[in-house]
Design a protein around this nucleic acid. Structure first.
Length: 570
RNA sequence: CGGAGCGUAGCGCAGCCCGGUAGCGCACUACCUUGGGGUGGUAGGGGUCGCGGGUUCAAAUCCCGCCGCUCCGACCA
């Protein structure tokens, strides 16, 4: 394409609203334009990159036997009522006003509805069905450019199997395909164990790209290979255990102690001997929860431990009503209302604990959780902290922010049971189809790629997803020598099979063209300037390294081919 | 949904406190100039100052309401 006619509106100035480098560069390079919060138009250059990524995904999905579908985004609400997900999504799902339709935020329901009509026998499986399509989610707060939008492109696939071993195999295939996809897109990523959430299922992993702008936290240790989303991460932090002496619980006045730190400071109590008491509502049932010292409650763990779809902390007035005291003075003894009680494993069966007396200004010491509390279960409920020993070998954990670029998920039979998608097994018994669901965010791949590959001047595309392979830059195209040579280069490179962007604009200074070229960030820039052409030479600049090579014009095509092969390996 | 900030030309911003001719840089158009890192110049075009209401002789500016956008937090199956 020629820049004289191709629509690439680059920006010299940085758009004020964009914070992330990838967001700024996509705007500046003329790839996208914002339309509304979390909604972007893809301009020709941006769309070329999307198509490259999509093609890589398509090839890898086909390689594992995936079959491409194209499912409707407009869905009857009724279908979503069958699985209870209209309520589960709540405001996150878009509802059409003048007809009873919703805009699909994902496609488990549609897939299951097709399967229940047409998959009847174990002989019909396994199946891997996928599509690459626009998804709609009414995100309360879109952010980070295309990373969290209300409308976005997603590759979603679904596996249908007649056995749990079959599901394991479909899951493994997806895992492998995903690794190949990210590798081919030139992304540095890592895989973490992830929460299956409230939607059921037996296992799930996320593909993560480290980024300060990420919305997820991951705990990992590179040596041991442990890596998990903070929502499920555990550590080998030692349990508190029991003390020899076990005197009766004793109330004492703590008029100025509102926090664990206050108790530690004012009464010399060991932090780990404090049982922090929290009240949470789990699907409308209040629970009293005990944590060790200053350990943070991990709400995702609480949610899955209790098997509920929603948890929230009790409000101040609810606290007073249920316990008789305010936050900071709550505990297991003398509760105003009996509450179901659970606790973190770290303080399992501990004694000698200090906790609130359910009376403002008083605490109890020498609490034996087995004797004085009514704890029904101990769960892993705590948020791991940086530096804690990892659960595999006790090496220190690191906690980093990351962006989720993919998620593989063993769904099991939740949807097939809810919607009656069954098959007959070899014994003639009716069974629910065993499903998996797997997603990749296309715009997140592009954004993360730019996050990882850019400098102060612009983007540094990996050849596999660069919008074009090579730029030809004609300096002073008004000169007949430059015009003629650059036109020939443009033609020769295209005939050799390269995708070429030709900066044939007149009246622009070399500096201006170089800046634009660096911003667009194509892997190679073949520069045709009068100075070198007079000696029969051109110059090739490698975007990634800044290296420049001067060589005879006749060798340009060959050199580009060799350099691109090199660059593909990075 | 809580907290903060911002809406003035395509983009980035000033003007607002203290009411009285709507301004700057970039971009755009024409011509000249320059030609290896966003050249320099001359002359131009482009704005219901987010929307609605109010106060006033007079509102971008003061008051009320709404809408939109961004950031922090909550949420994110």
């Amino acid at each position: 394409m020629r820049l004289t006619t191709y629509f690439v509106p680059t920006l010299k100035e940085i758009p004020a609203d964009a914070q992330m480098p990838s967001h700024r560069l996509m705007l500046r390079a003329g790839m996208i334009r914002p339309l509304s919060a979390g909604i972007y138009s893809l301009l020709p250059l941006g769309w070329r990159v999307w198509r490259k990524v999509i093609e890589i995904i398509r090839e890898e999905m086909d390689r594992i036997g995936g079959q491409e579908f194209h499912l409707p985004a407009l869905n009857p609400r009724e279908l979503w009522e069958e699985t209870g997900r209209v309520a589960a999504f709540g405001d996150t799902m878009f509802h059409i006003k003048n007809r009873d339709y919703v805009l699909a935020p994902t496609h488990e329901e549609i897939i299951t509805s097709i399967a229940r009509g047409s998959v009847r026998s174990y002989k019909d499986m396994p199946q891997i069905w996928y599509q690459i399509q626009t998804k709609f989610r009414n995100e309360p707060r879109p952010r980070s450019g295309v990373v969290r939008g209300r409308q976005f492109t997603m590759k979603d696939s679904y596996s249908l199997d007649g056995s749990w071993e079959g599901l394991d195999e479909s899951y493994r295939k997806h895992h492998e395909a995903y690794c190949r996809i990210y590798d081919r897109c030139g992304l540095k990523y890592f895989v973490v164990g992830a929460s299956s959430g409230a939607m059921g299922g037996s296992g799930s992993e996320e593909f993560m790209v480290e980024s300060d702008a990420g919305e997820d936290l991951c705990a990992f240790n590179l040596e041991s290979g442990y890596a998990a989303n903070i929502e499920v991460a555990t550590s080998a932090v030692p349990p508190v255990g029991r003390l020899e002496a076990n005197p009766p619980a004793e109330k004492f006045a703590t008029p100025f102690a509102k926090s664990i730190d206050d108790l530690v400071e004012q009464f010399g109590i060991e932090e780990t001997r404090c049982a922090k008491s929290l009240v949470y509502f789990a699907d409308e049932t209040p629970y009293l929860i005990f944590m060790c010292g200053n350990d943070q409650l991990n709400e995702a763990k609480l949610q899955s431990a209790l098997g509920v779809s929603h948890v929230r902390p009790a409000r101040d007035e609810e606290l007073a009503e249920l316990t008789g005291a305010d936050a900071g003075s709550i505990g297991p003894i003398n509760l105003k209302t009996p509450l179901p009680q659970i606790a973190d494993r770290r303080i399992a069966h501990a004694n000698g604990m200090v906790s609130g007396a359910n009376e403002n200004g008083f605490h109890y010491r020498n609490i034996d959780l087995d004797r004085d509390a009514a704890i029904t279960a101990y769960h892993d409920l705590r948020m791991v902290e940086e530096g804690e020993p990892d659960p595999l070998g006790g090496r220190p954990l690191r906690v980093k922010r990351a962006i989720e670029v993919g998620h593989v998920f063993k769904l099991g039979t939740k949807y097939s049971e809810a919607m009656g998608a069954t098959f007959l097994d070899a014994q003639g018994r009716e069974q629910p189809i065993i499903m998996g669901s797997y997603g990749i965010g296309v715009e997140r791949i592009v954004a993360c790629h730019i996050e990882q590959r850019h400098d102060d001047d612009g983007i540094i595309w990996h050849p596999n997803i660069a919008p074009f392979h090579v730029q030809v830059t004609a300096l002073k195209i008004e000169s007949p020598l430059v015009r003629e040579s650059s036109e020939r280069l443009y033609t020769d490179l295209r005939e050799a099979g390269f995708e070429v962007l030709f900066d044939d604009r007149a009246g622009l200074n070399p500096g201006f063209k170089f800046k634009d070229a660096d911003l667009l960030g194509l892997p190679l820039n073949v520069i045709a300037g009068e100075k070198n052409l007079k000696n029969g030479n051109i110059e090739i600049k490698i975007r990634a390294t800044g290296e420049r090579r001067i060589l005879p014009i006749g060798e340009a095509v060959e050199a580009c081919a060799a350099l691109l092969d090199e660059l593909r390996k990075t």
